[in-house]
Each structure stands twice: as C-alpha cells, then as structure tokens.
C-alpha cells in the first residue's frame, strides 16, 4: 500500500518567531484565567499537556496562529466559548469500556452490594452516559437495579442531555456487543436497544432509577453519601493538585467500606488518600474505603 505523507504542517510559530515554551504557558494561563473570570468555567487546574493539545486543535480548526488570538475570539464571542467548552469538557468513552472491569465488578463488588437494602451510586463525570447505561444493565442482570439509585453527574449540560436521551451511534453497537459479552453479559445485547432516530435507543427502563444532574467536580461540594463512586478516566484530565482535591471530595462522600472505582490506568499511588483505601483483589482499579 502506498503511504501518503501530507506535507508537514508548517509550524504557525514560524510566523510568530521561534517557539517559546514559557511564553506559550503564559498565554494558556491567561486564556484559562480569562475564561474563568468572564464565563465562570474553571479549567485552570486541568492537566497542562492535554488542555494544551485540545486548545491547539481548536486554534488550528479556527485558522488562528496563537493562543492569544484564540483568547480574543473566546472572550468576545460567546458561541466560540460554547465550542471550546465542548472541546475541553467532553471525555470520550464507550459502553462496557474495559470489559474486565465489569466482570470484576460482578464478581467482587456485587456480592457486597447484595448485603445492602438500598444502594446509592455516584457516577461522577458521566459524559454522554455510555458507562451509566452499562452499569444499569449490569445491575438489572444481577437483580439489584430496583434497590439502586444512580446519580449521574457531569459539568456539561449538553452531554448530560445526551445521556438522558440514551441514543448511541448504531455503528458502535458491534464493538459494544463484543465488550458486553467480554464483560460477562447474560443476555443478547440487542435486547437492550431498538434502532431508532438513526441510532440505538436504549430501553428507558434503564434510566428509571437514574438521576441526571449538573455537578462540577472542580467547584461543587459533596451532595450525599454513597456506597459506590465511579469516576473512570475523568481525573486523568486534571493536574495533580486538582486530583487531590477531588479525591478529598470522594473520600468525604463515601460511606465506610464504600467502593471507589477509577479508570484502568489511574492510580491512588500519586494521591494523598492512598492509605485510606484497600484495593480489591485483582488488577482492576476497585478500591474500598477502610479508614
């Protein structure tokens, strides 16, 4: 197969002098400070390399040359801020992402949950809801759904609305079906959706006990006590100081012996709360609050 390599994108910085790492950092911090003070969205403690990457994608999409140029547009044109908000706040996910996690949850966490009369679950940073529906399916199959309540929260109103609709792209269903089977699913995955509106509409019974709500992990407080908190691949977008703060929020929001679930490549090793949890046996990032 012949491979085409596009002409290397000329560095925009060729037009603006040599690359100055420190100057770029100043520009990004000023932009985020402006966004916070003018619009109230606080991205100042997001992981620098990933926010930088997302900002540059927006800068290039708009045909701009510098972070400062983007700042002017963002501050003066509110629709551009909405676009940036989607760029910065959407975390991409999939149904039954990391199937081995769901399998471990069935085997190791479900037996604990069976001992509770009522189960409160917080899905923090639920994005477009794929993992909320996955957990609802799992709880239904384990016969726990009727005594569970899932609080699904996100910072972004647009994606939260999508979560509520429960329509996911049809072309992902093959991947999701494979994930579902690998995750120990007990039925035919297609039992849970109907092809509709050009997508896969998931059974509304899955959200009967789900409360969708806006919540900002950066600025908002704890709002209840939970038996399980799921926050997978959300904190990776935060820097270490903000991660520590959110871990404090989770710790305060978990009942004693409550379960904290992180993404498969997230760790408590670099957090001040490491000693307060024990990892449930196995490689999955399932922790139990022990002190």
């Amino acid at each position: 197969m012949a491979v085409q390599v596009d002409e290397p994108v000329p560095s925009v910085l060729e037009e603006t002098g040599p690359y100055d790492q420190d100057l770029e950092r100043i520009e990004i911090e000023l932009l985020l400070e402006g966004v916070y003070r003018h619009y109230g969205f606080d991205f100042r403690s997001y992981a620098y390399a990933s926010i930088r990457r997302r900002l540059w994608k927006r800068i290039e999409a708009e045909g701009l040359a510098t972070v400062s140029a983007l700042q002017a547009v963002i501050l003066h044109q509110p629709p551009m801020m909405e676009r940036l908000l989607l760029d910065l706040s959407i975390n991409v996910t999939a149904m039954f992402r990391d199937p081995t996690f769901y399998q471990a949850f069935r085997e190791r966490v479900v037996p604990l949950l069976r001992t509770y009369p009522y189960i409160r679950i917080w899905h923090a940073g639920c994005a477009t809801g794929e993992e909320v529906y996955s957990m609802a399916i799992l709880l239904q199959e384990e016969g726990l759904y009727d005594r569970s309540r899932i609080y699904a929260t996100d910072i972004n109103e647009v994606v939260l609305q999508k979560s509520k609709e429960g329509i996911f792209p049809l072309d992902r269903m093959q991947e999701y079906t494979e994930n579902y089977i690998a995750a120990g699913g007990k039925r035919a995955f297609s039992d849970y959706y109907t092809a509709k509106y050009g997508g896969a509409l998931f059974n509304p019974s899955l959200t009967k006990n789900v409360v969708f709500s806006l919540h900002n992990l950066v600025t908002d407080r704890s709002f209840a006590e939970f038996n399980v908190i799921l926050c997978r691949n959300v904190l990776i977008y935060f820097d270490k100081s903000l991660q520590a703060r959110v871990h404090g929020l989770f710790y305060d929001s978990l009942a004693t012996f409550g379960i904290l679930v992180l993404g498969s490549k997230e760790s408590l090793r670099f957090s001040p709360y490491e000693d307060h949890y024990e990892q449930i046996n196995g490689p999955e990032k399932i922790f139990r609050k022990v002190r």
Partner: peptide, 11 residues
C-alpha cells in the same frame, strides 16, 4: 502525553 516531569493519559 509527556507533561512537565510526568505522563498524563487521555481517552
């Protein structure tokens, strides 16, 4: 992603 002094992951 290579960040200053550590790695950050993204999905």
């Amino acid at each position: 992603l290579v960040d200053g002094g550590y790695f950050s992951l993204t999905t």
